[in-house]
């Protein structure tokens, strides 16, 4: 390879890599730095509604003004702490329910015959392609007090008075499990499908009962799928806004709702940014685990 060839190659690589790289740095990485910056400023009336962090003084002196007031608000008011804890709690329960419902589904799909497998997979993925907003909205009609679920239960005679389900945490949980179930099933299916079935046969030959074989062979082998699926459900669920807003009640405190209210209703950009920064700190460990898994998947497929 001549020097010219090498130069062409290098420039070619740069030409391919630069557009997506630059795009992500400018529109994904830099915005997060700005969020951190604004969380350290103070809210004022004006455009934009926050104080500058860096300012050139009259004698070309650069002054840095850091206001920790927004974080003070977060720590001072237990409303925020409660919202964070409640978000984590609801997201964790929703993840667990997705796992309970999604694992048998993924298992059954992975063990089904090739002719129906693609159809079954398509049926799991299809709701994901239809509007998320519309699917959450569909539950309002089912869960509300004079809705279909209460109608059915009254008609069956299970209950005498309609249950209050909409505007409770239960409704938020139902909405989350419903919306995020495909994200659990698809990665689980991917690991279960790859599993070497002769391992189970070997376990059976050695006198292992099916349930025991499941616990000691299948479950550990499907761990990467369990972790990936759980993170794909848990992380977005913590910051969920649409589901608690539509299905939850006024006292359903979730951090996404708080951020939205601070930004759109109170117009307090610094506090909204501080809420976002605190949420990022909370999610940084799960996000890093997810990135590592993604990275390993990239290495593995090469």
């Amino acid at each position: 390879m001549t020097a010219l060839d090498r130069a062409v190659r290098r420039w070619g690589r740069l030409l391919v890599g630069l557009p997506p790289y630059a795009w992500l740095v400018v529109f994904f990485l830099v915005p997060f730095l700005i969020v951190i910056k604004i969380s350290l400023s103070q809210a004022i009336m004006g455009i934009p509604p926050y104080t500058p962090l860096l300012e050139w003084g009259e004698d070309a002196v650069l002054t840095i003004r850091i206001a920790l007031g927004s974080f003070g608000t977060l720590f001072g008011d237990e409303l925020y702490a409660f919202a964070y804890l409640n978000s984590l709690r609801l997201a964790a329960i929703a993840t667990f329910c997705c796992l309970l419902l999604g694992y048998p589904a993924a298992y059954a799909i992975a063990r089904s015959s090739h002719s129906v497998r693609n159809l079954l997979l398509l049926l799991v993925a299809l709701p994901f392609w239809t509007s998320f907003l519309i699917r959450v909205y569909a539950w309002i009609g089912i869960l509300k007090t004079e809705g279909l679920l209460n109608g059915l239960l009254l008609w069956l005679g299970v209950i005498d008075t309609p249950l209050q389900i909409l505007e409770t945490d239960l409704a938020v949980l139902i909405g989350m499990v419903y919306s995020y179930l495909p994200f659990m099933v698809l990665p689980l299916f991917a690991t279960l499908e790859k599993m070497d079935m002769s391992l189970l046969e070997a376990a059976a030959d050695l006198g292992c009962r099916p349930f025991q074989a499941f616990i000691s062979v299948t479950l550990p082998l499907s761990m990467p799928g369990i972790v990936a699926g759980s993170l794909l459900v848990f992380i977005p669920a913590v910051g969920e806004f649409v589901i608690p807003d539509l299905l939850g009640g006024p006292d359903t405190l979730m951090i996404g709702k708080i951020l939205w209210a601070e930004f759109f209703d109170n117009r307090d950009w610094p506090v909204a940014s501080a809420v976002a920064v605190a949420m990022l700190v909370l999610l940084v460990v799960p996000v890093m685990i997810f990135q590592r898994l993604q990275g390993q998947a990239t290495e593995g497929t090469r």
Partner: peptide
């Protein structure tokens, strides 16, 4: 996996 509400806020501030 990033919660949309964080991405949205970050984009607007940018």
């Amino acid at each position: 996996v990033m919660p949309e509400i964080i991405t949205g806020l970050a984009m607007l501030l940018l």
